[in-house]
Amino acid sequence: MAPPEDSVANPPPEAEEAAAAGEANTKPISTILIVMAMHTEAAPLVSKFKLVEDPDRSMFPKGVPWVRYRGKYKDLDINLVWPGKDPNFGVDSVGTVSASLVTYASIQAFNPDLVIDAGTAGGFRAKGASVGDVYLASAVAFHDRRIPIPVFDLYGIGAKQTFSCPNILKELNLKVGNLSTGDSLDMSPHDETAILANEATLKDMEGAAVAYVADLLSVPAIFVKAVTDIVDGEKPTAEEFLQNLVLVTAALDQAVTQVVDFISGKCISDL
């Protein structure tokens, strides 16, 4: 029996969404959004991809310090954004609030096919991490959103599997591990308990926030993280982070370049 004419002419929203998703998965990736938290992390990639800072900030709300670099690399339109310097304190606007806001605004403005959250992270020696290792996160979660009420507790943790990229992992020499996100550089006993529960190899201050926004707006996202410090090591986290930041950023730059080179000319389903 043939479907009613009205259903053919006006397919239900679910069918339209499924068709759009299928088309997106099989067309070559053309626009990517790279989200980074710190200028030190972003600068090598800006140079590598020959990106230029966009003086036109009309795509962002008036007064925000967010910075966009743009350019063409191979067959990809690249938008690299970072939240800029805090206007009151003059430091990089790190953390989940800035990351989620700039990710939301950038997805709305640039309509990327793929989001890459690239940055540094702490790593756990007990999970096999060493300074300079670069990971592709397999799952993300928060460790400092404690809401001890049924269901709200799961919402607070916000655990998500990341977009699966078996071919990237097969091609590139990246490690795999879970990423846990919180708004503090140090680790309280409460945070440590939650991070262990998240089975995390990595600890950062942005990843799960970027994942939340990308998932909300139905854009695939991958997370490339380079280890600057060993959270369960002997050195103070802040000291080790600052000591290794520039050196580890070079490893991050190389890994992100390899990922972007792999993406060029491929579809989402090829990743």
Rank of each mutant, 00 (worst) to 15 (best):
A2K: 13
D6K: 14
D6N: 12
P12N: 11
P13Q: 08
E17N: 10
A19C: 10
G22Y: 06
A24W: 01
S30K: 15
T31A: 09
L33P: 09
V35E: 07
V35Y: 01
M38A: 02
T40L: 08
A42N: 01
A43C: 01
P44M: 03
P44E: 05
L45I: 13
S47K: 15
V52E: 15
D54H: 07
D56Q: 03
S58R: 07
M59A: 14
K62H: 08
K62D: 13
G63N: 06
P65K: 01
V67P: 05
R68C: 11
Y69F: 15
Y69R: 10
R70E: 13
G71Y: 01
Y73D: 06
K74E: 04
L76M: 03
I78C: 12
K85M: 11
D86Y: 00
P87Q: 05
P87C: 02
F89N: 12
G90W: 00
V91S: 09
D92G: 01
V94D: 04
V94A: 11
V94K: 12
V102N: 02
Y104C: 13
Y104W: 10
Y104V: 04
A105S: 09
S106W: 02
I107V: 10
Q108P: 03
Q108S: 10
A109K: 09
L114M: 08
V115G: 10
D117P: 02
G122V: 05
F124W: 13
V131E: 03
V131G: 06
V131Q: 07
D133Y: 05
Y135I: 07
Y135C: 08
Y135L: 07
A139P: 03
A139V: 04
H143F: 01
R146W: 12
R146G: 06
L154T: 13
G156R: 13
G156F: 04
G158L: 04
A159L: 10
Q161K: 14
T162I: 03
F163W: 08
S164V: 11
N167G: 06
L169A: 13
N178R: 12
D183Q: 05
S184R: 14
D186E: 13
D186W: 14
H190E: 15
D191Y: 07
L196E: 03
L196F: 11
A197I: 04
E199D: 14
T201P: 05
T201H: 11
K203P: 05
D204F: 00
M205F: 00
V210K: 10
Y212W: 10
V213I: 15
V213R: 09
A214M: 07
S218I: 01
I222M: 12
F223H: 02
K225S: 07
V227Q: 04
D229Q: 13
V231G: 12
K235A: 11
P236W: 05
T237E: 03
A238K: 08
L242Q: 12
Q243L: 09
V248C: 08
A250I: 09
Q254A: 15
T257I: 02
V259M: 02
V259W: 01
V260M: 03
F262K: 06
S264L: 02
S264E: 02
D270G: 05
D270E: 11
D270A: 10
L271T: 07
